[in-house]
Simulated scan of single mutants.
Amino acid sequence: MILDVDIGHVQGAFSLRARFQSDGKLTALFGPSGSGKTTIVGAIGGLVRFNHGRIVVQGQVLVDTKANVFVPKHKRRIGYVFQEGRLFPHLNVRQNLLFGRWFTPRHDRKTSFDHIVDLLGIGHLLERRPSTLSGGEKQRVAIGRALLADPQLLLMDEPLASLDEARKAEIYPYIERLRDEGEVPIVLVSHSVAEIARLATSIVVLSEGQVTASGPAFDILRHTHLFAQTGLAEAGALIDAQVLRHEDSFGLTVLQTKAGTLRVPHLTYPTGTGLRVRLRARDIMLSLQKPIGMSALNVLPGLISSIEYAEGPSVDVQLDCSGDHLVARVTRKSVEELGLKPGLPVHAIIKSIAFDPEALGAVKPQHM
């Protein structure tokens, strides 16, 4: 187990009671402001001393209030990346990176400087000062500095929150590389569904100081009631895909999934690239028969696995499409008129233009 957290903390009017475990390469702590995300990462990093509980990282007990164990933050080997890069302005990029080495005994320094520079694509920045870097470049350097301290865990507290969409798009691929190719597990704080859909392998959902759900990203994201705070438009399912081919004359890319092929607006990824695709519940319609004479290009057969009712007119219909689990948001009236029930075969209809580009990210190819 990479991370085992069981803590209780009261500070003023705020009360936190968080218990979860994660074995994911990138665990996202998700929730609105004030839900306890930053308090938890502060507790893991040793910046917050909580009232009672226990924290174990990669088998090492960092805190156990019952046993009176509290490892000081400078001995925890935890890397920390904040919203702002917090680079030293008087040092160039190379010097900022090497500063991380000071916190690790020489005999424990295993991470290659050249490997981190290559992984983060910052070789051309080494002689520049922080004042000349973009926001995305500063964050990549800050991540590199943290990694060169040879941490056993990397904490990232909303590292993209201060960046515009262009800078976010610049840094996403590097975080994906860290997740898929790096050897250091990551805990990422975020309040963006698209961000965690693109990056997370495990998700811990927080609300008002309580853990409301935790588990693999593919399981958590399709339970739309967990994300009611972000608006119904955000909820949906996550599936693996590979780039099958490009239909340049139509401006489309064809993706292969377990459920079948999907056509999406043209992507720049080469053939064979593994992708994570988020299909929003609001963008999926259901039909009892395979439709004909429709403009929608994507029709996936499946079986209804469950129907989740909530307050209001909407109902979430969970689908099993040959192993890919989707969710469609329909009205109660549609459920009644179509006679929708678990086990019923249906067809999911998805518009090509409905795909969420921000949540689309590269991963190591999976077997389809």
Rank of each mutant, 00 (worst) to 15 (best):
N298K: 08
T331A: 05
T271F: 00
D324L: 05
L288P: 01
E308V: 15
Y309L: 15
T257E: 01
A328E: 02
K333M: 07
L319E: 02
D240C: 02
S306M: 04
T331K: 03
Q229E: 14
T271V: 15
E247S: 09
V299M: 06
Q318P: 00
L319K: 05
K333T: 14
M294T: 15
Q256T: 11
G312M: 06
M285D: 09
L275P: 06
H223V: 02
Q242S: 14
D320N: 15
R280E: 06
T230S: 13
R282I: 11
R245G: 03
F250H: 11
L238N: 03
T273C: 05
V330T: 10
Q318G: 00
M294S: 11
H325N: 01
L275C: 08
L262P: 08
I239Q: 02
T273L: 04
G293C: 07
G274M: 07
P291R: 10
L288R: 13
R329C: 01
I307K: 06
D248I: 09
M285I: 01
S287D: 11
N298W: 05
G274R: 07
E234S: 15
I284D: 03
I307M: 13
Q242K: 14
T253W: 02
G231S: 14
F227G: 04
A281V: 03
H266M: 09
V330K: 02
R245M: 08
D248K: 14
L288F: 01
G272P: 07
S287Q: 10
I292L: 11
H246G: 10
L275W: 09
T253C: 04
T230C: 02
S295Q: 08
T268Y: 00
K333H: 14
L262M: 09
F218I: 13
I239C: 01
S305C: 04
L255K: 07
L275I: 10
A235P: 04
T271Y: 00
F227S: 06
V330Y: 03
H325Y: 10
E247N: 13
L288D: 12
L297G: 04
G251Q: 05
H223T: 06
Q242E: 11
P265V: 11
P265R: 08
V327S: 03
G302L: 11
R282W: 00
G323T: 09
H325S: 02
R282T: 12
L238E: 01
D283A: 11
L300G: 06
R329T: 02
P270V: 10
V254W: 05
S306H: 13
Q289E: 15
N298T: 08
Y309K: 13
G302S: 12
P291A: 09
R278Q: 14
V330A: 04
D283Y: 00
H325I: 01
V315N: 01
I220P: 01
L221G: 05
H225E: 13
R280P: 02
D219E: 15
S314E: 12
G251S: 06
S322F: 09
I220N: 01
L244Y: 14
G231T: 14
V277E: 03
L255C: 09
L275F: 11
H325W: 02
V315C: 03
D283Q: 06
V299G: 03
L244K: 15
V254M: 07
E247Y: 00
E247L: 14
P301Y: 09
M294A: 08
R329S: 05
G312Q: 09
P301A: 10
V299T: 13
L279M: 12
A241S: 12
H266V: 10
H246S: 10
H223F: 03
S287C: 11
A259T: 07
